[in-house]
């Protein structure tokens, strides 16, 4: 019942969605959309002349957590950054293939770049709250940056909901006016998650969000990720295989063999990847033989 395609998926990805999940009510009509969530077709990436990623096909199911694992330099972070068009910020970067959000191509479609990034939020490796802003201003900064106009009442509402969803509300509700930098590293990362949630994205991309944090902060972030997956699609890059097992339902294993661009070796249910992988290389990686 693999729901993630890896082998040269062509146009026919609709079979992967099952039952009612593929049916959306829109403007009074019922139609089948394929695929929902975020999907990548035949994505390749270059930095200048160097090809770092080749032929990646992956469907990231809505309201589930998909983990991207693999050794350093396998292209998993690069792939993540193609999903909200951050890849193109690097001078000389280019890509081929197609990325769709609910069936709309985010590169060639009608959706403006800033809209793409608002719908597909991102949390970075290092917590990066805006230092000149208070905790509250940090959370609401996305509204300002993306030009969303909201009234005062709604702002307070967004502030509270976002912090609650990020699991930070209790700790900061009495100090919303303090600078964001006054928080601990783990709290800063949850502040960044709250900031991303405030613009109501459909997808949240997380690029090794715990690699700069201590174990107990890591645990808090993982709990947050699990709670969030009820309401938002999450794609998380992680070096930590226990983390991938704890938080994700699906998992894609990336590998770049010597002098080769990165590819997906195997993608499946996380439970299967870690117990009965199909590929020998996946087995070697998840059992800690390299990487």
């Amino acid at each position: 019942m693999s729901t993630i395609n890896t082998q040269s998926t062509t146009s026919n990805t609709s079979q992967t969605s099952s039952g009612d999940q593929s049916i959306i009510h829109s403007a009074g009509e019922v139609f089948i959309e394929s695929p929902r969530g975020l999907s990548a077709r035949n994505v390749s990436c270059w930095f200048g002349e160097k090809k770092v990623l080749e032929g990646v096909n992956l469907v990231m199911r809505p309201l589930e957590v998909t983990a991207l694992i693999g050794p350093s330099g396998c292209g998993k972070s690069t792939f993540l950054r193609t999903l909200n068009r951050m890849h193109e910020l690097v001078p000389g970067a280019s890509l081929a293939g197609e990325i769709q959000l609910n069936g709309d191509d985010i590169y060639r479609g009608a959706m403006p770049l800033t809209e793409v990034r608002r719908h597909i939020g991102m949390v970075f490796q290092k917590p990066n709250p805006f230092p000149a802003m208070t905790i509250a201003e940090n959370v609401l900064s996305g509204l300002r940056l993306s030009g969303l106009k909201v009234d005062r009442h709604e702002r307070d509402d967004i502030l509270e909901t976002s912090l609650k969803r990020a699991g930070l509300w209790k700790e900061v509700k009495d100090r919303l006016g303090e600078p964001g930098r006054a928080l601990s590293g783990g709290q800063q990362q949850r502040l960044c998650i709250a900031r991303s949630l405030a613009v109501k994205p459909q997808v949240l991309l997380m690029d090794e969000p715990c690699s700069a944090l201590d174990p107990s902060s890591t645990r808090r972030i993982e709990e947050t990720v699990q709670e969030l997956s009820d309401t938002i699609t999450i794609v998380i890059v992680t070096h930590n295989m226990q983390q991938a097992q704890r938080v994700s339902k699906f998992c894609a294993f990336f590998l770049a063999e010597e002098n080769q661009p990165g590819r997906i070796v195997e993608a499946d249910l996380t439970a299967k990847i870690f117990t009965t992988p199909r590929d020998e290389r996946t087995n070697a990686y998840v059992s800690g033989h390299f990487g």
Partner: peptide, 17 residues
């Protein structure tokens, strides 16, 4: 800092933002 610039862009910010 690049990290903060990327954060602003990832929130749907424009260059001016």
């Amino acid at each position: 800092p690049m990290g903060e610039q990327e954060a602003a862009l990832a929130l749907g910010g424009t260059k001016w933002g």
